[in-house]
Write a protein that binds this DNA or RNA. Sequence first.
RNA 1: GGACGCUUAGCUCAGUUGGGAGAGCAUCGCCCUUACAAGGCGAGGGUCACUGGUUCAAGUCCAGUAGCGUCCACCA
Length: 922
Amino acid sequence: MDKTFNPENIEKARYKEWEDKGYFEASGSGDPYCILLPPPNVTGSLHMGHAFQHTIMDALTRYHRMKGDNTLWQTGTDHAGIATQMVVERQLNAEDKTRHDLGREAFVEKIWEWKAHSGGTITQQMRRLGDSCDWKREAFTMNEDLSKAVTEVFVKLHEEGLIYRGQRLVNWDPVLHTAVSDLEVLNEEEAGFMWHMRYPLADGSGEMIVATTRPETMIGDTGVAVNPEDERYKHLIGKEIKLPLTGRLIPIVGDEHADPEFGTGCVKVTPAHDFNDYEIGKRHNLPMINIFTADAKMNNEVPEKYRGLDRFEARKLIVADLEEQGVLVKVEDHKLKVPRGDRTGAVIEPYLTDQWYVKVEPLAKPAIEAVEKGDIKFVPENWNKTYYQWMYNIQDWCISRQLWWGHRIPAWYDDNGNIYVGRDEAEVRSKHGLADDVALRQDDDVLDTWFSSALWPFATMGWPEETPELNTFVPSSVLVTGFDIIFFWVARMIMMTLKFTGKIPFKEVYITGLIRDEHGDKMSKSKGNVLDPIDLIDGIELETLVEKRTAGMMQPQKAQKIAKRTRSQFPEGIASYGTDALRFTFLAMASTSRDINFDMGRVEGYRNFCNKLWNASRFVLMNTEEADTGKNGGDIELSLADKWILAKFQNTLKDFEKAVSEYRFDIAAQAVYEFTWNQFCDWYLELTKPVLNNDASSEAQKRGTRHTLVNVLEQLLRLMHPFMPFITEEIWQRVAPLTDVKDVTSIMIQQFPQQSADMLDEKALQDVEWMKSFIVGIRNIRGEMDISPNKPVPVLLKNASDEDKRRMKDCDLFLATMARLESVTVLAADEKAPASATALVGEMEVLIPMAGLIDKDAELARINKALEKIEKDYARTEGKLSNESFVSKAPEAVIAKEKAKLDEFKMQMDKLKEQQASIAAL
RNA sequence: GGACGCUUAGCUCAGUUGGGAGAGCAUCGCCCUUACAAGGCGAGGGUCACUGGUUCAAGUCCAGUAGCGUCCACCA
């Protein structure tokens, strides 16, 4: 084995072997355990958030597979309608072409090409992460099976009246020329203005001042609203206003929406371009005048001079005209929420169009109940509040998109504007008795991407066919995802799966936090702080990284800043840490669902951890590979250390499994790390040396220690495998043949270690703790007194009990080596000790005579420091116990504990003082 | 306006029914001791954001304040 751990040499080959041998497929026996991969968009590549979630899913999958469950990790990708279409359109734009130059068919063909390429990238990246998902079942939301499910769901919902077509005001993205759902609109506060305008009464009897943030829409005004209770204006209700610029007469209406406290109390009403005004318009039967084209330019409804102008150009001109005509009263600075498309960033326009909708309320009801009844549990639980909040106020879902990439809506129109819905044109014709010569035209629109995603839990299992998978893996076990798609995806899956299978889609929803950069900023291309998980695995040169982060930046200034920041943060580029170190980092940071500020220091630390494991394994192999490990029989005698590490391993195993069952991967990781480094490496390996290197050890003793070495390591590797699949497999291949394991094909299809109470040797645990404190005591004196660790020291024992003496004897060999003892002398009760440095082991004092070794002042300082600390503890404990209300009210166990502490402190204090006095007297 | 979350060591974070403040990284000292310098041994470092309350006892429970963050709704 190499002297240091080199991940790049092992990972790819191992993965290929697992995949080729079919280890990722469900075994077909055991309890079903299923995780649905949130299908990544085929738009690009995996980011840190994916890597994080995939690590958790893979750890769970591997763990349950090893536990013997019938385990399926269902994988696949999402066609991501808008996002993908935009990527390919941008590519066309770079060639000075638009999708219209190609036409629909050719354009969609081009997207399929891109999908093949990009989807391949993603699946390759998943393999690098070690994802043990079943590639044979890989799904894609636009493939034939899923498309069939989509059509089926659409038709059925339509038949039940849960899908309908209607003309409504929608969120219109004027760049993409499509409607988007409420969820795809982000409302950001931006600085703007409030224009106050003078609207004259038609009868010349006065005027009203209305205020608006969008003066250009005044051309589409069809009313002015005042609150019916507003004393200032209520007498005007029913009168008319003469709208400036157009001269149209519009009515004054009384409507609760107008807030007398806000602005002037008078609201201009533009029903075709504002959601609130739309409702007012409906209430008062006001006409709706659409003044925009699909790309948000002024249309032919407006006075000629404004026609064809972009809405913001028109705004300037209209404001200027209003000012000139004396209509404009004043302009104030005003902060307002501007709706922007989440993909394009374009200002969304409320726009009157025909769209398809899902009537959501009847679907939402059972979906809410499923969570209320506890059939579906959110982890952590408080996310159910977020879920309820949205579900209780759910609005109908606009599912049609004016795009080319997606599932074409299965609806056909005849020349008279009749609409027919069916699985295909032939079905439509036969269902509605339409002759072949009746011209039918399929709806041009496609469905919202999330419509097909909502079917993922059952569509990937073969629905609408009755498949065995549908029976076995619905519901799935746990959904691992981010809070950002609870509404987009989680809620909709619950609704659709309940509707079409009568079953919940998953039993638990584990909500992860977001991966942010080291300062808590969101990782984004424009900030230039994006880390690519693959770069952390393979490493990347500084120049390549800078190039990657600054490529395609719109503003060169920004690119410079990013380059500078990158150079200072990674002067040497990024080292290759390997998949296992990256995975372990994610798991160790996955505490609750709070966001994670990704810290490179942690990755490096866990890379070192991999190296530690690697070298510990080298040590084990060095001592066992050419030797008798007892796997073929022979007497075995376990040392105290052997018994101790076996017991420690049991405790670790128990902690690990408990933590995993609670999705506390940080605690599980911590347990593994602590055991491996602080117990197995720091103590156990050192404790095997005296046994293995001592000529006095019997063959049974050596065999016992070798047997323990390989078998504990082997079990540890299995324990760690779900977290660090590659390194554990690599080492296991060497170690397993030396152990009692029969099947040495691959670690990933082994049983997970079994908890066993017989291995919990309490006596060994206590004896070794005693021994550790003995050794640490000596080391501490050495460290502070500058005594070389190599120099053997004589030791005197004072106040040693029979138990201490027994332990001295049992630990004799270990103590001599680990503490480098020259000699051990047990002092009789009345025997006077020479001046010494002291360490306390329980009530026993371990003395190192000062003669020639120890400096008087240094030892005094050391004692004083210890004394100070102990005195503080003593005072605090004594204070508690002398507090009458504590003694009378605290539970007895607590009081007893405090008393024991007090005695302990007193004893230590006395000994230290005694020591202090005798040294001071020198 | 409503909901949720955060504030603990220089940095990134744990701290599970209230009962002697922890980890990793960074820092300091000594060590190239044949598994490992990506290491070993030892050490230093915190008025747990602030104020008040409940309690014998509060990082932990309650109320409030300040700062930060997220989501939902929204006033033209």
